[in-house]
Design a binder for these strands. Structure first.
Lengths: 117, 117
DNA sequence: CATATAATTCAATGAGTATTGAAATATATG
DNA sequence: CATATATTTCAATACTCATTGAATTATATG
């Protein structure tokens, strides 16, 4: 998958406000679904859905609590976030902006006027 | 509007492939609608729609050609792009990730077991 | 003023996806 | 094994928004 495609997927992933908020929360540290539910007041099945999407994007990872497997802990994936940040900065870079004179109107159209005078 | 909300809007704006492509094109320099149409093979009214969304996000600006007002030139807004890039870096920053012990299971639940043994 | 070019606006359609409610799974405990 | 907790999965609905086609606006020119 090309960087551009990965970025498109990243934008799509973070375009949803609830999902962005959940990710924002995980950036501040590990949380389980029920904690996220308590903070955001969203239903757990909806949170579960968003966590899955974030996970498929590679933004977060998860593991069951060792001594009590009922809880699943979610946390931001630092390595992947660094990589994606790099892709974004390469794309969304003011330095990329170039000077350019539009080719419109086309030569054929302007030529006529230029010569007629 | 908070930075988080602005970013969500930015992601939404760039989440559409056609719109991202048009923005990408404008990063390479000023273009008019008809040039974008020639390059992307998209209908001009659709391009017009996407340009409007990009414009409302503040990513691009536009002005009519001085000596022939039929053409409207679109170009990336360097100042705004720099600002948005700043918001992104503040939000999507691996350094923000903190150590955290989930408060789940709650004290009341674990307390019982701790004391019973 | 009539015609042509560039671009936008508007209303309608369609596709993708967030959300909801109900049912199922995984783990722990008495 | 039965019950409780945490979480997920599934099917159905609702909503947003990209896309399409037709009509409209703005500018230029004969």
């Amino acid at each position: 998958m090309k960087n551009g495609e990965i970025l498109a997927k990243l934008f799509k992933t973070l375009a949803d406000p609830n999902r962005a908020r959940i990710f924002d929360l995980l950036l501040t540290g590990t949380h389980c679904n029920c904690e996220i539910a308590a903070i955001t007041e969203l239903p757990m099945n909806l949170i579960s859905h968003h966590l899955k999407v974030l996970s498929q994007m590679g933004l977060i990872t998860s593991h069951r609590k060792e001594d009590d497997g009922r809880w699943i802990y979610y946390n931001a994936d630092e390595v992947q976030i660094k990589r994606l940040q790099g892709y974004f900065l390469d794309y969304f870079d003011p330095k990329r902006i170039q000077e350019r004179t539009p080719q419109c109107p086309p030569r054929a159209a302007t030529k006529k006027r230029d010569e007629d005078e």
